[in-house]
Design a protein around this nucleic acid. Sequence first.
RNA 1: GCGGGCGUGGCGGAACUGGUAGACGCGCUGGACUCAAAAUCCAGUUCUGGUUGACAGAGUGUCGGUUCGACUCCGACCGCCCGCACCA
Length: 876
Amino acid sequence: MDSERYNAREAEPKWQRIWEESEIFRTPNDDPRPKYYVLEMFPYPSGRIHMGHVRNYTMGDVIARYKRARGFNVLHPMGWDAFGMPAENAAWHRKSHPADWTYANIAAMRGQLKSMGLSLDWSREIATCDPAYYKHQQRMFLDFLKAGLVVRKKSKVNWDPLDHTVLANEQVIDGRGWRSGVLVEQRELTQWFFKITDFAEDLLRALDELRRWPEKVRLMQANWIGRSEGLALRFELEPAPQIASREVEVYTTRQDTLFGAKFLAIAADHPLAAEIARNDKALAGFIAECHHGGSSAAAIETAAKKGYDTGVKASHPFDRERRLPLYVANFVLMDYGTGAIFGCPAHDQRDLDFANKYGLGNTPVVCPPGEDPATFTIGATAYEGDGVLINSRFLDGMTTQAAKEEVARRLEAKPLGKRPQGRREVHYRLRDWGISRQRYWGCPIPVIHCGACGVVAVPARDLPVELPRDMSFDEPGNPLDRHPTWKHVPCPACGAPALRETDTMDTFVDSSWYFARFTDPWNAAAPTTAEWIEKWLPVDQYIGGIEHAILHLLYARFFTRAMQATGHVGALMEPFAGLFTQGMVVHETYRSKAGEWFYPANVRIEARPDGRHAFHVDSGEEVVIGAIEKMSKSKRNTVDPDDIISAYGADTARWFVLSDSPPERDVIWTEEGVQGAAKFVQRLWRLVGELASLAAPAGTLAPGTFSASAMEIRRTVHMSLITLDDDIERLRFNRAVAQVHDLANKLSAAIGAVETTKIGQDIRAAFREAADILVMMIAPMMPHLAEECWAALGHADMAAEAGWPVADRALVVEDTIALPVQVNGRKRADLVVARDAGRAAIEAAAVALEPVRRALDGRPVKKIIIVPQRIVNVVS
RNA sequence: GCGGGCGUGGCGGAACUGGUAGACGCGCUGGACUCAAAAUCCAGUUCUGGUUGACAGAGUGUCGGUUCGACUCCGACCGCCCGCACCA
């Protein structure tokens, strides 16, 4: 082998072509080997891949290639999350059809992904906008409908005025649409909902079983589901001329504080508020005011607590003489609990703020530990913790927990009308998932509205309900609704003229089951074949961004349960056994004095004694190096993967995104770092060349005995392999990279050491083994370079189809070991002893060491601690 | 406010369940090779003191504790980041 530079530009497309032609990454379903399903979150076809994709798909590819070499039947597919707003926006701006725009983007991005050398089974590629994909989704929708897991209900919804569509709660961030960024409005609309709340308890409980999920994500989901245990409690209302209602039900988790109650408050949209308002113009005005101001989360945050005294009084469940005023209050939410609360000012900050404003007073009923019950009072801060009950008759002296239990027990036994006055209840913060979207580029909801028959499911034979192709996008609003003919159809039940549903499904529905669709070979006649889903799922390792911790990952967990409930999968409950959330790719920002942002490609960095300086390439003007931030178009701190791959090659890009930073943390993209990776590619190429020139030919039998120096090489290599195996298994790619660097350094040193002496057959065999193992170790991370090296080493097969080298653990056990010796916890010397040296021998040798004697400085030894094969500590 | 995470050299980061702090890389410094530059190779690089070498002391955000021994465990505090947020 000559010492020419490794030419990635030639080698990479060559190996990509060979892999594709030999179909080695095609995954058969009926392979008897153990399965391993590795999946990265599929991309939205925006048109170009970005560095985040490079990082995400490189990590997945390392795992896929590693597991494949280890003998697993690996499923590693790719697809496109292809429905969504940008396609419609593009249609409007460029007068191109959303389908054309989307498929052109897919073609471009597929080419980019292929240039990365990913070991994907492209025969399983899917796009969610393909009728062959969404027909299954429509069928499942109808099965869910039949099973009661889809309902149509009137509801207050989040309305995005810019995108002209409804958003799920999960898609509203800080009161703004997750995509448009504009303030969301509240509207009453009839919408389709997935009954995710039916699974609230199970979705919460099963989080405990997801051992291979990040703790953070499980916590975020648990908080989102927001389980609370409390008491639904009915207050009796005193008869009053303005109302017919005789009671109001509140929900509380603090029934122990019932004797501290000073008022009741109901939400502005509570039916009782509407009832009273019929005869109370001022209240009607107040309710309108609440609706007006209180829509966005941001407005709620700053809004002061406001209430309206209805004049209605409620009686305390344990004391009819206590009469509590009924307020309508702006801080009570209709969609949590019962939309009504009892206010205990002493032990709830909101209630205290409210009570102070309206002069309702407070009575402390829970005394904090360490406080004197006789003198404990509440000022401006409510006490929300646990304690001992006071001022509460039969509860006095009880703990918070005991008092909760006692109140619940008594109210469950106490009738009000025909029912008990109290009822233990579990409430969730989680809301049902509204999926109706007033958009064109989404999966049509397969129902028909008939004046006589109501909502009628589209018959199975008519699926899929396909989107019409002839569309105009020149007006805002739902284009499907404006289409001249599409929605007019006869009712499948009675034949009378009827109307199609013109809403389409939230695109998060599309991504809630795509991992299941991949398991079924493309073009298979059977829809979502349960057999293959059960063979492949759960996904063994799922990788994607933390931004999907709630939205996508919760929806997918729900959808899998709904599929199971409707017979689309067997016993499977969780779609993703292992989840890894990777960090972002971040980059410095560059800005001119005038405030103009510059792309890194247009900036030249110069290192000077006083630090790094940046200059615009064309003008030469010095630009300011700004903060390191997430790559974004607005700050122009993006690096185009295409540019990197054409300049350095895919292996360099892959190597760099795996280096340095732990995969769950952000990685800083730097020009120096990429150049370092590129240099290392060349160095490896030279190193393998040198090893090849010294090594025994491929397939040569190893000699029976190895000299000490040959053994040292072998030990180094096997030790390195053991470490790397562990690093990859635990997704610690930055350590795997460091391990390869380390081995390369050690092998270079070993070559330097032997070249002067006459090289023996045992050394040649050791170098042969070292070269083979080194190349296999880099193969998951830099697959093209590995193939080129593998071929140069004389192998007839491809590295991508070679088995993983087996580390010999017996080899790394040495006869003598170096034990660090501490004096009073500080390391003073190394002690070289036989591995099986006895305690007495170690003690004697340790205190005899010169640095130990010096550190002891004549003091007597009190004791010696010996941790076998780890450390010796001499205590004086 | 609630919940969670993180603080280690000039920088990114190592240090497995308490056992040699700073692996590996970037950067920097010096040297070799070269007419020269790039590339490559070699050596050094936590801080302080010491004439160089081995040498001594300090050191993982701060203060305290447990321990033969603490980046790791416990308590209090400081700083930064993320998620949720009028959820009764």
